[in-house]
Write a protein that binds this DNA or RNA. Structure first.
Lengths: 152, 152
DNA sequence: TCAACTTCTAGATTATGTCTAAAGCCGTCA
DNA sequence: TGACGGCTTTAGACATAATCTAGAAGTTGA
């Protein structure tokens, strides 16, 4: 996994380093939408000497080179999303958790007919409560419940 | 105007006070999407002794009783929107300004077919750049329809 | 007037993010 | 080898937004 990640970083013009790989290992493979603080905690669990500035720098580097998207959806939290394809988002009212919603699940009319704006990107943001049980989720990347082949 | 506002507050179960009316006067009538800090500044221009805590408390009270919506759209800013009808939002990449987009301007498919979620509200969030001149905007509710000077 | 209650205030505190200056690491070249 | 230069990392100071707290001030009704 780390080897492939190093390749990805290089391919994006980012010099891999131990710290950057540690950040990448978590943030580019998670299905969560972690905040910078969560990333810091996860990374420090492996490499305790990683400083806050490094994590912020690295996240910004990743965002700048397109490996990561930065989302502002929930109160007071900037979160990062490694899923690069367009998709919508659902925010759970109770837990604040953010979940991806496939692009095809919600049809949106043609936004380009809004003559006043040149729309670069758009998404539907839904808020409410989840029905039924929560998807199994790893809050710490120890166990791998499913190999998740759906990554295209 | 203030009288009507006092009625609205009472109708929402909020005891009107000088401070609360001052906040309401600005935030419930503006067409901007002000941040808490902007509200504080505007209110203090009229009632200089209003403390920050009061503004925050009042804004939260308004949100809790549904007079105001709280939006998290742009980085590091929680903004308030007195427009209660459903509508979409456009965020200007360059200026960070938020603009309302009429509900009818963008068609969205039926979100209730998402069985996994009980969607309370949703909106389309668009990002990009504005075409053409900015709409005239009053930043203070006095009778002064002068356009905003070109400041960020 | 008094007591109970609500509201408001200043300032401390917390949370999040940025900046800075120094140190570390690593490949290169004499 | 060892000095050099460039990039990366670090700890901690700084900045800012938001919240909390404890007491003061105001309001209400008898």
């Amino acid at each position: 996994m780390s080897l492939e990640l190093a390749q990805r970083l290089k391919a994006s013009g980012i010099q891999p380093s131990a710290q950057r790989l540690a950040v990448a290992e978590y943030v580019l493979t998670t299905e969560d939408h972690p905040s910078a603080d969560q990333v810091l905690a996860q990374v420090q669990a492996r490499l305790p000497m990683v400083s806050r500035a490094t994590v912020y720098n690295t996240l910004h580097t990743f965002v700048a080179s397109g490996l990561l998207r930065q989302l502002v959806l929930a109160e007071g939290r900037v979160v990062f999303d490694p899923k690069l394809e367009p998709h919508h988002h659902f925010v759970d009212d109770e837990t604040g958790e953010i979940e991806d919603v496939p692009w095809s699940a919600v049809q949106v009319g043609d936004v380009s007919r809004l003559k006043a704006y040149d729309v670069r990107e758009y998404m539907v943001v839904m808020r409410g409560t989840r029905r039924g049980p929560r998807k199994a989720k790893k809050s710490a990347p120890e166990t791998k419940p499913s190999p998740k082949p759906g990554k295209t």
